Every structure is written in structure tokens, then in C-alpha cells.
Computed example of a mutant assay.
Amino acid sequence: MTGKQQSSQAVHIILWTAQVLLAALFMMGVIMKFQPIAKISVMMPWMGQVPAWFVRLLGIVDLAAALGLILPSLLRIKPRLTPWAAIGSIVLMLCASVFHIARGEASAIGLNIAAACIAAFIAWGRFTKSPIESR
């Protein structure tokens, strides 16, 4: 294996790691957003201050993000959807940041910014550096 092939393989592994980690983060969000609102709003007060249907809808959006980051590439069925899911994740995290800043919760956006950066890396990597081919 040449140095270029090893480098490409390393990038591929790092991208998969990023995809799995970001998908796991979104799945944690899914689990939280489908807990009883009274229970979860103790840790995250905003969830008790918006309609329950909105919290559940965000849980569904988180689920779509998690699945979009993994399944297209894993199954090699339209794997070009994975970087698009990453871009959607960036938009979601930016919207979440704006939401928290508007509520005076700017200190809560660190995780959103970190997730957006990981998603940007995935989008870049899967579009340009190490795309996954369809079957």
C-alpha cells in the first residue's frame, strides 16, 4: 500500500468515526426529546417552554439526521446523500444556536458549534476527499 493509499484509508476511517459519533449525538437527542417533557425540562428548561409537538418534531429531525449520516454510506445506496445530511445537520445546529442566543442562552451553544464543525468535516470529506461509491 502506498503512502497516498494509506492516507486515503486513514481519512476514510476518520470520516466514518466522525459520522458514527455525530449520529450517536443525534440519537441521544432523539432519546431526550421523546422523554416526558416534565422530566427532561428539568435539565433543559426550553423543552418545557415550547409546545410538546415541537420538541417531538425536533426529535424526528434528529432521527433523520442520524440515519442520513450513516445509512446511505453504510448500505451504499445513494451514498451521496450522506454529505447532504451533514449539510442539513449544519443548518440544524446553526438554527439551534440562533434559538439559544435569542433566548439568552449563548453559553449553551458550544455543543451545537462543535457538532456543526464535525458535520462540515463530514460534508467536505464525503464530497471531495473520500466519497463512497454506490453499489
Rank of each mutant, 00 (worst) to 15 (best):
T2R: 11
K4T: 10
Q5N: 08
S8M: 13
S8V: 03
S8K: 15
V11D: 10
I13P: 00
I13Q: 13
I14F: 14
I14P: 00
I14K: 08
W16M: 12
T17W: 13
T17L: 15
A18D: 01
V20Y: 10
L22Y: 02
L22W: 03
L22H: 05
A24S: 09
L25C: 04
M28R: 13
Q35I: 08
P36S: 08
P36N: 12
I37C: 00
I37T: 08
I37Y: 09
K39Y: 14
I40R: 05
W46K: 11
W46I: 11
W46P: 03
M47N: 03
M47A: 09
M47W: 12
G48I: 04
G48D: 10
V50F: 07
A52Y: 10
W53K: 04
L57P: 01
L57M: 13
L57Y: 12
L58C: 02
I60H: 02
I60L: 15
I60Y: 12
V61F: 12
D62A: 14
D62Y: 13
D62W: 11
A64R: 05
A65I: 14
A66T: 02
A66R: 07
G68F: 09
G68S: 07
L71C: 09
P72Y: 09
L75S: 10
R76Y: 07
R76N: 00
K78F: 15
P79M: 04
R80V: 11
R80A: 15
L81M: 10
T82N: 01
A85G: 03
A86R: 09
A86E: 09
I87P: 09
I90K: 04
L92V: 07
L92T: 02
M93S: 05
L94E: 08
C95Y: 13
A96V: 00
A96H: 03
V98E: 04
H100Q: 09
I101T: 04
A102S: 13
R103H: 13
G104T: 04
A106P: 06
A106Y: 11
A108W: 01
L111W: 01
I113E: 01
A115D: 07
A115N: 06
A119K: 04
I122Y: 09
I122D: 02
W124Y: 15
W124T: 01
W124V: 06
W124A: 11
G125R: 03
R126I: 00
F127C: 06
F127K: 03
T128Y: 15
T128N: 09
I132S: 02
E133G: 01
E133D: 12
S134T: 11
R135I: 14
R135A: 10
R135P: 05
